[in-house]
Structures are given as structure tokens and as C-alpha cells.
Simulated scan of single mutants.
Amino acid sequence: MSSGIQGAISMTAPLDVPGSATEPAPEAVLAGADRKAIQGRSLGQIAWMRLKRDKVAMAGAVVIVVLIIVAVFAPLIVNLFGHPPLEFHREKIDQSTLVPKEPFGGISWDFLFGVEPQWGRDIFSRVVYGARISLLIAFLATLLSTVIGTTLGVIAGYFGGFVDTLISRAMDVFLAFPLLVFAIALAGVVPDQAFGLSGDTLRVALLVFIIGFFSWPYIGRIVRGQTLSLREREFVDAAKSLGARSPYIIFRELLPNLVAPILIYATLLIPTNILFEAALSFLGVGVRPPTPTWGGMLAEAARYYTVPHFALFPGLAIFITVLAFNLFGDGLRDALDPRGR
């Protein structure tokens, strides 16, 4: 019996006894820990990793960057590849039909997008310069609506009660307001010189005010809903228990947690503003000709339906810009809020 027990013991695996050969040395454990140290990632780094994996969103971001570069360096691009946007080239126009003499609208290496009917202006140059007006109005209007909507949305959601009721009813009034009719009426009433501004500067400022001031309820309602949820969280209760006042809680506790939805909705609001500016220019109440805008070019092209290239290129510019912002906005939403997919 004793020999059987000894045999069973000898067949079992040896135990790690302190000081034995099977126990790993402390220096080896520490060296391995140094080589495989785990590095933490911030929420911004995690969101950036998710966004980089979304190839469609990154393609939209690249297109947006290219459009911004084109808008900023429009004079340089036109000098290299086109002609001044207000320069006439009547020699390329058939005066009897007012359409380009050459086939395909006069598209050539000298005129990449061809020439306009009647006047013979370079369509490429006008599309490039039109990007400056459209993007400038869209960005400024989005900034204005985001600031107003975020401020009133946070105030309504945090304080509640009568303040929430008053701001919410104001949102309902603005959402029910016929914005397009008001824009047409206001643009027609304002004179050529007002508020110390004139010309294109006045028209751009007027469009930014109309689009931005009357579109803030859309982002305001989203911010209000998020604030109503955040104000019940533990970190807000902890800040109140430590004696923090309302301005501190709003700016240091609530707003940092609202950055993601604000950025997401702002990127989705920009293409809407681009389309609205194009619609106003198409109706003749935007920036006045001969200043080139995408909507204004489409309005002029409507009279020359037999010359399709005239409407094709500004229409493609609007389509590509809106699509790029929408794709990037969707990807940004998935990266910052993956649970909402």
C-alpha cells in the first residue's frame, strides 16, 4: 500500500515551492510587465479610432477638406486653371441663339466646365467662387444657430419649470414659422444699404441671420433633451452636494458631456443650410448677380434647358457637398455615440 501511494505522489506535477527552480524570478516578472504595459486611451482617442475605421466617413471628410481649400484659395485656383468669373467671352457665343458655338458647351482645356450661354463667362471659375459664398453662409449660419440653440437648450433643460415652458413654446413658434416666406419678404424689404453694410456683404449677413436665427430650435430641442437626462446623473448631484453653483455645473459638468451631440447635429445641419441658401439664391432673394453662387447659377440655367452643362456643374457641386457632409456627420455620430447605431 505504501509503495502505491509513493508512486501516485511521484506521478503528480511538482508543486511550486518558494525558492525552488520552478518559481519564476521576480526580475523576470517585472521585465515582462515593462514590455507589455497597457496604455489607457481617452474618449477622444477611442472615437478617432472608430472614425478612422469608417472609410465612407473619412472619404466625406476628405471631400470637405478639399472643398474648404478650394473656397479659401479660389483666386489662386482660378488664376491657374480658369478665367476671372466676371469676364465675358462673347466670341465663344453664337449671337443668334445665345448658346456656345463649340459642342459640349465649349468644354476644353482652356474652359474646363465650358462657358455660360449669352455671356460666355467661365463656368469653372464661377463654380469655384460660388463655393466661397455657399460654404461661408452655411458655416456662419450653423455657428449662429448652434450657439443660440445650445444656450437656450441647456437653460431650458437644466432649470425646468417656467423657464423650460417659455423656451419650449418659443421653439414651437419658430418651428411653425414659414421660414421661406419670411426670408423672401425680408430679403425684398431690406434696402441695398443698411446697418452700415452694403452689396454682397449685406446680403450674406442677411442670409446668415435668417437661416441661423430661425433654425436654432432644431438643435435647441436636442440639447434640451440631453440636458434633462444629464441633470439627473450622479456627477451633477455630487457637484450640487459640494456647493457648486448653477453656472459651474452648466459649464464644467453639462457642456463637456454635450459636445458630442452638438458636433454631430452641427455637421448634419450644414448641408441643410447649403441647400436653403441655394434655394434662396434660386428664387432670386439671395446674393444678387453677377456674384456667382451655386443657386444663382441654377436659376440662370433654368432659362437655357437646351444647354445641360450649364446646370450640371453647379448642381453636382451642391450634390457632392451635401453628400460629403451627410456621410461625415453619420460617421461622426457612430464614432461618438456607438450605442445609438
Rank of each mutant, 00 (worst) to 15 (best):
R90Y: 08
E91S: 12
K92S: 10
K92L: 15
D94K: 10
Q95G: 11
S96V: 12
V99D: 03
K101I: 15
E102R: 14
P103L: 11
G106F: 03
S108F: 00
L112G: 05
L112V: 11
F113E: 04
E116A: 12
P117A: 14
Q118N: 14
W119Q: 14
W119P: 01
G120N: 03
R121Q: 14
F124C: 01
R126W: 04
V127K: 02
V127G: 03
Y129V: 05
G130Y: 07
R132K: 13
L135N: 04
L135I: 15
I137K: 05
A138L: 04
A138V: 01
L140I: 14
T142C: 12
S145E: 15
T146L: 13
T146Y: 06
T146K: 06
G149N: 09
T150D: 12
T151M: 13
V154C: 12
A156R: 07
F159V: 15
G160T: 09
G160E: 08
G161T: 09
D164V: 05
L166F: 13
L166V: 15
L166E: 01
M171E: 03
M171S: 08
D172Y: 09
F174P: 05
L175W: 00
L175R: 03
L175T: 02
A176E: 01
A176W: 04
A176Y: 07
F177W: 12
P178I: 00
L180E: 08
L180T: 13
F182W: 13
F182M: 14
A183K: 10
A183R: 10
I184S: 00
L186M: 15
L186V: 14
A187V: 08
G188S: 13
V189E: 06
V190F: 03
V190Q: 07
P191F: 04
Q193D: 08
Q193C: 00
F195K: 02
F195P: 03
L197P: 00
L197M: 14
G199T: 08
T201P: 05
R203P: 01
R203C: 06
A205F: 13
V208H: 06
I210Q: 08
F214D: 08
F214Y: 13
S215F: 09
S215I: 04
S215P: 07
S215R: 11
W216H: 08
P217T: 07
G220F: 10
